[in-house]
Structures are given as C-alpha cells and as structure tokens.
C-alpha cells in the first residue's frame, strides 16, 4: 500500500452535505499554539480533510518544531 498520494480535493465530497470540498481556512492547535491554514473543507458544514501528504509532511514538520521549541 505504501505512502500514497491523496486524492485531489476536486474529487472529494462531503458525505453529510453531498457538496464538493473547497479550500477554506481551518484552525489547528498543538502544544498551546494556534495556526490557520487553507485545507479542503465542506463549504456547508465545515468538515475538514487532511491528506496524508499534509499530515506526514508540513504538519509533522511543524509538530517537531513546536516540540523542540
């Protein structure tokens, strides 16, 4: 299976609202710090999608930075 690339946001729809996800700002927090960044998100209910690429890439980098801060 390996570390696969995520599906493109355009092909993803919200299971609750049935609408395609769009890039919308979302809030994240770790060790008392807050960040905002655009991620695929349901424009109606706000459900967020985080791809493996983001989780294991940039997010993991920031997590490590904050742990070592």
């Amino acid at each position: 299976m390996g570390e696969k690339m995520p599906s493109a946001p355009g092909k993803l729809t919200c299971g609750l609202c049935g609408v395609p996800l769009e890039l919308i700002k979302a809030q994240f927090g770790y060790l008392g710090h807050k960040f905002h960044t655009e991620v695929p998100r349901c424009p109606k209910c706000g459900q967020v999608f985080i791809s493996e690429e983001l989780a294991r890439g940039r997010m993991a980098e920031v997590e490590t930075l904050l742990e070592d801060k």
Partner: peptide, 11 residues
C-alpha cells in the same frame, strides 16, 4: 496537531 472548531463553522 488537533483540528479545532471544525463543528462551529467553515471558517
């Protein structure tokens, strides 16, 4: 990292 305020709005 935690996804925060997901239920509250779409940002």
């Amino acid at each position: 990292m935690a996804i925060e305020m997901e239920d509250i709005g779409n940002g």
